[in-house]
Nucleic acid binder design. Structure first.
Length: 326
DNA sequence: GTGGACA
DNA sequence: TGTCCACAACGCCTC
DNA sequence: GAGGCG
């Protein structure tokens, strides 16, 4: 699929065919035949506030959310977290694409792989590939920050607000707002997304050719400026037990083959939370409400409960030079 | 979820 | 034939 | 250099 083309979103007919499948079968999605088994297997058990999510639900989610998620994955190697027996059983990371993947899954060979390293990565260029990963029990996708064409050149600078055990959600929101204020003053465009857990991230699009050394140093610098405003909320200690429960602003993810969870990826946690881009006005509203939750689940999104606007998609490919921070 | 290495 | 097993690993930091 | 950290 050429870059810029809208990825496929499952049609009503395709979804009806998925619902009608009993037992093992093959599902035709956008011209690709996807083998499906154990569709009623529970991958996320029910919680007090959520219903169980089955493999059929997950496939349906990927088939519909692919239209939003694939633009963030396209042309990038992907690292995945797999839970073939559901989120309550042991899972594992996978980088190397198994040889039995369908031939239409795009492959990228890492020229920087050392002996013993993963060499062949999947590239999620279309919705059927995403759905196939779902059939393999992929419950979290981590796309590279750089592209297959230029693996040493990030396209995003990533700000990761990682709360400690003593960090309140309202404080996470405050930190995000402080980043936003700083970015506004610098005339830098960026958008936030939930992580599906307790943190928030701010993604900053950067111009082609920017280096990881540059994005990492820039995010560290900006994070230290923000932390100086609220020194009691942030710790710069390396060891967890020396952070006194405070938040960490983790700039070190800005490196080759270091990844953060992809927008619209589920998280392998009870309730099937999803990492969702959120407009700044939603961050502000949650903060003004004293720390109202900003949490979206697979079930919420299947029911059409996403924010009305995805503020991150319009930033894809924005050629932005990071300003000098003095 | 799947294939490969063993018994 | 069945059962066990693998399926990631970089840069930063402290000691 | 080893090991924690994410």
């Amino acid at each position: 699929m050429p870059p810029g083309d809208a990825p496929h979103r499952a049609t009503a007919d395709e979804l009806a065919a998925l619902d009608a499948l009993t037992g093992d079968g093959s599902w035709d999605l956008d011209g690709r035949a996807i083998a499906l088994r154990h569709l009623d297997k529970v991958l996320f058990p029910a919680t007090a506030s959520t219903k169980a999510v089955t493999k059929r639900d997950l496939v349906r989610y990927y088939a519909t959310a692919g239209a939003a998620a694939v633009p963030f994955l396209r042309d990038r190697p992907v690292n995945v977290q797999r839970f073939p027996n559901g989120v309550t059983a042991a899972g594992f990371w996978q980088k190397q694409l198994p040889g039995h993947a369908p031939p239409w899954v795009r492959r990228w060979t890492n020229p920087g792989a050392k002996p013993g390293d993963s060499e062949v990565y999947a590239v999620v260029d279309d919705t059927p590939t995403l759905v196939w990963l779902g059939t393999q029990g992929v419950l979290e996708l981590n796309g590279w920050t750089s592209t297959a064409a230029a693996p040493d050149a990030p396209t995003w600078a990533l700000i990761d607000i990682d709360p400690g055990p003593e960090t309140a959600w309202a404080e996470v929101l405050l930190l995000a707002q402080l980043f936003r204020r700083a970015l506004d003053q610098l005339d830098v465009r960026a958008a936030a997304k939930t992580t599906g857990q307790r943190g928030l991230q701010v993604w900053v699009p950067v111009a082609d050719g920017t280096s990881f050394d540059h994005t990492r140093a820039w995010v560290e610098r900006l994070s230290r400026l923000v932390a100086a405003v609220v020194p009691d909320l942030v710790s710069w200690r390396w060891h967890v037990d020396q952070r006194r429960g405070r938040a960490r602003l983790d700039y070190t993810q800005n490196a080759r083959n270091r990844t953060l969870v992809t927008p619209w990826s589920p998280r392998p946690r009870p309730g099937a939370p999803v990492s969702v881009p959120v407009p700044w006005d939603l961050v502000d509203a949650a903060a003004e409400a004293g720390g109202a939750p900003l949490q979206f689940t697979v079930a919420d999104l299947l029911a059409g409960g996403a924010p009305a606007v995805d503020p991150l998609t319009p930033l894809i490919g924005l050629q932005q030079t990071l300003p000098d921070l003095g």
